[in-house]
Design a protein around this nucleic acid. Structure first.
Ligand SMILES: [Mn+2]
Ligand SMILES: [Mn+2]
Ligand SMILES: [Zn+2]
Ligand SMILES: [Zn+2]
Lengths: 154, 154
DNA sequence: TTGACAAAAGAGAATAAATCTCGTTTAATA
DNA sequence: TATTAAACGAGATTTATTCTCTTTTGTCAA
């Protein structure tokens, strides 16, 4: 839970951004965002729904999902790491990293030797044992970059 | 598609490991593994199913999923990145990294400043535009490490 | 203000991915 | 070859998410 001033600041920015983006200023949207802004963890949509219902018992799960999707699209929320259905399997068991296209979801390998070893400078939460580090580089593949450019010039 | 000698080598190792692990040497299991071993991409379970059915038209989707799960558990296959349902949201929009417990799936932030910047040493696939790099450090949280130790000492 | 219109909400059906159940078949091994 | 646990196939079930449709609510201009 963050402090009240910080949350108030986030809410003000949120309302500004919604106005800029043409998103209506609904009570449900505000409470969903505030619930996430108050959180310092990484809740699931169901968890958000559970918390939001304390404020708006009649809210529907669909509204929570709809808003989460819009807010992630507009960059007002993030998803943790690359996360999209369905599961992707990797027959390459060597330690290596990945390059993911945010548009077409293609996944390409980056060899371990092609990335400088990841170095943590600070102490981790007490007792956490790191087993492996994977770098996920997100961006646009050549094909998708071209398609997006074309769409923009319509 | 890899070359035949490489695949043959993988199949031999696979059969050895299955024997060691007490996994029965079924035709379905072999074809599923071979299909993945032949692949240089990151197929979905449905894609594996589609390919395996060319060899064994009567195979069931359940068998594909069952084997994928076993093989991932036993370390004969990997999942790409951390990937588990449901979606996890992040109210922290700053660039930062994550620490994920492989057992309880808890997610903790690692501040960007606490990790040396990720440096790619080699050229990426032509035209790929990287927008951001996220480090996912996987391992065991203190609580889970303790629970696993207890279970082992039964 | 109020009215028109688009955006968003609620309810619940539908879909997609993954898992489970259960009766049947098969591999391991004695 | 007979026994038995493991694995299979078929299809139901579960879980997360999305969609459809009707009603309600913001927004904005008159
Ligand atoms: Mn890979
Ligand atoms: Mn985070
Ligand atoms: Zn792409
Ligand atoms: Zn844990």
């Amino acid at each position: 839970m963050r402090d009240a001033a910080e949350i108030q600041h986030r809410m003000t920015l949120f309302q500004q951004r919604c106005a800029e983006l043409g998103l209506a200023n609904t009570h449900q949207r505000q409470v969903i965002f505030r619930t996430l802004a108050e959180s310092t963890s990484h809740p699931t949509p169901e968890e958000v729904y559970r918390r939001v219902r304390k404020k708006i018992p009649s809210i529907s799960l669909g509204t929570v999902y709809r808003n989460i999707k819009i807010l992630v699209q507009k960059g007002l929320l993030k998803e943790v790491a690359v996360h999209h259905e369905p599961l992707r399997l990797d027959p390459n068991l060597s330690d290596h990293h990945h390059l993911v296209c945010r548009r077409c979801k293609s996944v390409a390998d980056i060899a371990s030797e092609d990335v400088e070893p990841v170095r943590l400078k600070a102490a981790l939460p007490a007792g956490f044992q790191v087993e492996r580090c994977e770098v996920v580089a997100m961006g646009l593949c050549a094909a998708c970059a071209m398609k997006l450019k074309q769409n923009r010039s319509h």
